[in-house]
């Protein structure tokens, strides 16, 4: 058993070494308490709803979120807007549909089953409107960046005056958390930019946290289900392991050998 524990800890050590080697390029990101981290991590429902507001009023003018549908907004584990509210949100967007029986494309109000309407027709149009830089799709953005939520959260608050000696081209901004410190996006948030319905003060910090929480959910819509199932699965495995351990001891007691 002692030996087994050694093997088990060796396994964990190897795993953590692997993790370490990837975390080598650590940057000191701004830290905040994320409610969705940890064994029982869950999203803060109010933060998700506020985050959606920031996304739709600020980010969505340039950033698409093409893998999400309006129905997701009402689904369990997400912002959980009441269904009629989600329907109203969907209906506030114009969706191109068709062709109809005359062969014409037409627009209609959005439905729950529609994907989030994109701000631009295509990548080229997005680039043309943004000085050549493509505002990345935000559906899985959190998972597509090394620092994850901490990176996005920091980046949104990382705009500063460029240090002296650094020359920035027209339309380029300094951000201390951006890779290479140069970013095309101008500081998207400013205090009081949105007006939260629940009375929360819309500071840059607050909005950054809310919208990052929303982006995390967008990238991992089943995170809550995953955490809940994970806990059950691991408890189940541990109990089963203990039972099997004692069965094994019993069986092996018939022979002169240790396990």
């Amino acid at each position: 058993m002692k030996k087994l524990l050694k093997i088990f800890s060796a396994l964990l050590l190897i795993c953590s070494l692997n993790t370490l080697s990837f975390a080598a390029e650590k940057v000191d990101y701004l830290k905040t308490d994320w409610s969705f981290k940890g064994l029982f991590g869950k999203f803060d429902r109010a933060a998700l709803q506020r985050g959606y507001q920031v996304y739709t009023e600020v980010c969505a003018s340039c950033h698409s979120m093409k893998y999400l549908s309006y129905r997701n907004l009402a689904e369990k584990g997400g912002p959980e807007f009441p269904e009629d509210q989600a329907k109203a949100i969907a209906a506030s967007f114009e969706v191109t549909d068709g062709p109809n029986s005359d062969g014409e494309m037409f627009t209609r109000p959005g439905k729950l089953s529609d994907k989030f309407v994109m701000p631009y027709e295509n990548v080229k149009a997005a680039q043309a409107a943004n000085g050549g830089a493509y505002p990345p799709d935000m559906s899985v953005l959190v998972k597509a960046r090394g620092g994850g939520v901490d990176y996005i959260y920091s980046l949104l608050q990382g705009y500063e005056e460029a240090p002296s000696g650094m020359t920035l081209d027209d339309g380029v901004h300094y951000n201390k958390y951006m890779y290479g410190n140069k970013i095309r996006m101008s500081a998207p948030l400013s205090d009081g930019l949105v007006e939260y319905g629940d009375g929360t003060t819309a500071t840059v910090e607050q909005m950054s946290k809310d919208v990052t929480t929303f982006l995390m959910w967008a990238a991992e819509p089943h995170l809550e289900a995953r955490h809940q199932m994970g806990f059950k699965a691991i408890i189940y495995l541990i109990i089963l392991t203990i039972l099997v351990y004692f069965s094994m001891k019993k069986i092996w007691s018939r022979v002169e050998s240790e396990v």
Partner: peptide, 29 residues
């Protein structure tokens, strides 16, 4: 039974990755 016991220990490590850090071994890009 011995292999089964070891397999269960292994599955606990496995489950930890799947449920709590499913993307840590992959690359963000």
């Amino acid at each position: 039974i011995k292999d089964g016991f070891a397999l269960l220990m292994f599955m606990i490590v496995f489950a930890f990755f799947v449920f709590y850090s499913p993307n840590i071994l992959g690359h963000a890009d």
